[in-house]
Design a protein around this nucleic acid. Structure first.
Lengths: 240, 240
DNA sequence: CCAGTTCATATAGCAACGCTATAGGTGCTA
DNA sequence: TAGCACCTATAGCGTTGCTATATGAACTGG
């Protein structure tokens, strides 16, 4: 069925399952679809993988190796916290590129396989944070920081996956990422080079005024004036 | 089948589904199990709910109302950020108490129902953050802060649910919670909220913004825009 | 060179699944 | 009492995950 007949059936099953899992938008994938695409019959699948879940686990293992490879495959920048940011972004990118694989890995609740994968991902993050801790950039234990950061990372990625593609806003990711990192690290205020106290107080005041205006329905401005006013407020308060 | 036969079939179906959903450890629940427990036959289910998913959606709606009730049912402490912490803890508690319901609500990826639930939860959080913003305690827009906090909240809760009960460490929750809140808030009362009890918060915020703008020479607005903006600001702040 | 063993695949089919076409029973209003 | 919604049951369709059984191919020991 349009699949390389030279490959051994086990490989063909793995590829067929991965392909169907990747293309089916959330809906279930049946063993009959898989075996048909792989060009084998049902018992072959159960001979090699025992169960449908077993086949999916094998696919997930392959996917996790790809994930780990992605998390390791960049030159360390010498700045550990910067590398943590890259790991975060890699994580999100992996989730958005392979949402179904990601959901099986991080979204499901499967008392056996999931914790092990999560533990491995945590270990990767902790490893990186150890370097930051060694140079005095962390104010909490690396393990706890890794767990906390990874939890937020998973939450953000799930949010983004669940959103329609057209209005996915990656700023949610970068903002949460920097919040988490700055909270566990000693050197606060990323981008402090450009940030100064006066400007940030403008932002704070603008945000406060915006919230207060919307809550109070002040009639000091006409509706058209208010609209423009709020637009400018937004421009001010979204500058960082 | 051991279910109150006085109740209408629709209610019995809902209760049976909720019970089976709550007790089945992750494994699927079949319509036949549900209808048998409810003491009705298959077509009754489809008459009332259209589809299996429809029945589950109804269960989730009930669960969500319970969630919202939990998020609203505490006296505001007068300190908005403290209330945000309580909302966070409520969220986690709800997830750990009803993990299966929670997973359907926040863990699954269902392009229709999930975003609406998430959006409602975000609105709840944003509502609370608006109060914080009005008193100048936020340094990002309430909506973005709400999305970010909720994402981390969901991620932490999923982590905790996936962990074996015996070594669940709630410190992960409090630590991530405080990290997110401290990253998004500004504990220093920057001018805006300094004890001007008499004036409305709009006026206070406008005055603060006015002062801050003149001190910082922000370049987000052109000079003509700035002039008009300040004029409006003056109109707002001189109203009492 | 062949009997024995093991591995890998196919034929055929089971029980359970979500779902529905159809019909019968119930309580209401006219 | 007739008619009409509404609600539920009988029976069964097509599909699902999975398997008891059998067959062919490849290797091994004598």
């Amino acid at each position: 069925m349009g699949f390389d007949d030279q490959l051994p059936p086990k490989t063909r099953l793995l590829r067929a399952a991965a392909e169907l899992l990747a293309n089916s938008e959330g809906s279930a994938v049946s063993t009959r679809q898989i075996t048909k695409l792989a060009g084998v019959t049902a018992p072959t699948l159960y001979h090699h993988f025992g169960t449908k879940e077993g086949l999916f686990d094998a696919v997930v293992s392959a996917g996790f190796e790809e994930y780990v490879a992605g998390e390791r495959d960049f030159a360390p920048s010498g700045e550990p916290l910067e590398d943590v940011r890259r790991m975060w972004d890699n994580h999100v990118r992996f989730g958005l590129t392979q949402p179904h694989l990601y959901l099986v890995m991080f979204g499901n609740i499967r008392p056996e396989s999931r914790p092990s994968i999560v533990a491995d991902a945590e270990a990767l993050m902790e490893e990186m944070l150890n370097k930051a801790a060694a140079s005095g950039q962390l104010n909490v234990a690396p393990r706890e920081a890794a767990r906390s950061i990874l939890a937020a990372n998973v939450g953000v990625t799930l949010m983004l996956i669940a959103e329609p593609v057209e209005d996915r806003n990656l700023e949610l990711s970068t903002m949460t990422r920097d919040s988490m990192i700055s909270a566990v690290s000693t050197d606060k205020a990323r981008g402090a080079a450009t940030g100064d106290a006066g400007k940030s107080s403008v932002v704070v005041a603008a945000i406060a005024l915006n919230a207060a205006l919307q809550a109070s329905h002040s009639d000091q401005l006409s509706s058209s004036e208010l609209k423009l006013f709020l637009e400018w407020l937004h421009r001010i308060s979204s500058s960082s």
